[in-house]
C-alpha cells in the first residue's frame, strides 16, 4: 500500500515500473527462443560484453567529447546505453560466426568473450576522469536510475525486438526446433541464427537496465522456465513468460521499496523462489497422480 502511494507521487518509480513492464515483453518473446534453443550461456556472454560497451561509450564521451543526436534534446554526450547496444550486437555477431563456422570450440570462445568484455569495461572506466559510480551500478541493476529521457531508447529497442521476434516467429521457431528441416524448406538458417542472437543482444541491453549485467540471465530464463510447466506451444510460452516477468519485476520493485533493498537483486530472488516452488509443485503433483 505504501508502495502504491509512492508510485503515485514519485515519477522515478513510475519510470522504473514502466521500464520493467516494457522489458518484460521482450523478455517473454526472446527469452522463450533462448531457452528452447538452449543458448542461455551465449546470452550470458553477451550480457557481460555490455560492460565493455558502457565503459567505452562513457570514456569516449568524457575524454573525447563524442556526442549523439537525441530526438528531443538535440546533441548530447554519448549515452552509455548506445555503447551497450553496439557491444552487445558485436558480441552476438562474433559468437554467431564462431558457432556457424565451427572451427573453434564455441564454449571456449564465449567464455573468453565474456571475460574480455568485462575487462575492457573496467579498463575504460578506470581511464575516465571522475568517479563513474553509475556505470558500476549497471552490474547489479539500476532500474531506479533510469531517467525519463532514457525511456525512448528502451521503447525503441522493445518495439524492434518484439516486432522482429514475432514477425519471423515461424522461421525462428523452425530454426530452434529442427534446423536441418528448416534449411531444406529454403529457410536461410544462418541468417536467422544471427538474427536470433542479435535479438538476444538487444533484449539483454533492455534487461541490464532492470536487473543489471550479472543478473540478466536469470530474468531472461526463469520466467520461461516457470511458464514452461504450463504451456503447450511456443507462443503460449511467450505470452505467459512476458506476464510472469511483468509480475516479477513489479513485485521485486514493490518488495524492495519498503525495506530499501536493491530492486534488481530482490526481483531475481523472487524469480528464483517462484521457480523452485514450481519445480517442487510439479514433482508433488506427479507423485500424487502416480499414487
Amino acid at each position: 500500500m505504501e508502495f502504491i502511494e509512492a508510485v503515485r507521487q514519485q515519477p522515478f518509480l513510475q519510470t522504473a515500473l514502466l521500464t520493467g513492464v516494457l522489458s518484460s515483453v521482450a523478455c517473454g518473446v526472446v527469452g522463450s527462443y533462448v531457452v528452447v534453443r538452449r543458448i542461455t550461456y551465449i546470452a550470458g556472454g553477451i550480457a557481460h560484453c555490455v560492460l565493455g560497451g558502457l565503459g567505452a561509450a562513457r570514456y569516449l564521451a568524457v575524454e573525447h567529447g563524442w556526442r549523439y543526436y537525441h530526438p528531443l534534446h538535440g546533441w548530447e554526450p554519448l549515452h552509455p546505453l548506445i555503447g551497450a547496444v553496439v557491444a552487445a550486437l558485436l558480441a552476438a555477431v562474433i559468437i554467431a560466426v564462431v558457432s556457424l563456422r565451427g572451427r573453434q570450440r564455441e564454449d571456449t570462445v564465449i567464455g573468453a568473450l565474456w571475460a574480455i568484455g568485462m575487462a575492457t569495461g573496467v579498463l575504460f572506466i578506470s581511464k575516465t576522469s571522475g568517479y563513474q559510480v553509475d556505470l558500476m551500478s549497471y552490474l547489479f541493476g539500476s532500474v531506479l536510475m533510469v531517467g525519463r529521457d532514457d525511456l525512448w531508447l528502451l521503447v525503441g529497442l522493445d518495439i524492434i525486438v518484439v516486432g522482429v521476434g514475432l514477425l519471423f516467429y515461424n522461421q525462428l521457431m523452425a530454426v530452434c526446433f529442427d534446423e536441418e528441416f528448416a534449411r531444406l524448406r529454403g529457410v536461410r538458417v544462418e541468417v536467422f541464427y544471427v538474427l536470433l542472437l542479435c535479438l538476444t543482444a538487444l533484449t539483454v541491453v533492455l534487461l541490464v537496465s532492470v536487473v543489471g549485467i550479472v543478473l540478466v540471465i536469470a530474468l531472461l530464463t526463469l520466467p520461461v522456465a516457470v511458464a514452461g510447466h504450463f504451456c503447450r506451444s511456443l507462443w503460449q510460452l511467450m505470452v505467459a513468460a512476458a506476464l510472469l516477468s511483468m509480475l516479477l519485476t513489479t513485485g521485486g520493485l514493490a518488495l524492495s521499496y519498503g525495506p530499501d533493498l536493491p530492486a534488481g537483486a530482490t526481483t531475481i530472488v523472487l524469480a528464483g523462489t517462484l521457480y523452485v516452488l514450481t519445480v517442487i509443485g510439479t514433482r508433488l503433483r506427479a507423485r500424487v497422480r502416480a499414487a
Partner: peptide, 21 residues
C-alpha cells in the same frame, strides 16, 4: 521439453524463407 503441438510441427512443412507473420 520443447513446447510444440503436432499441428505446429507439420506446419513447418509450409515454411517459406521470408514470409512474415
Amino acid at each position: 521439453q520443447f513446447p510444440v503441438r503436432v499441428r505446429d510441427v507439420v506446419l513447418m512443412g509450409r515454411l517459406r524463407n521470408w514470409k512474415l507473420g
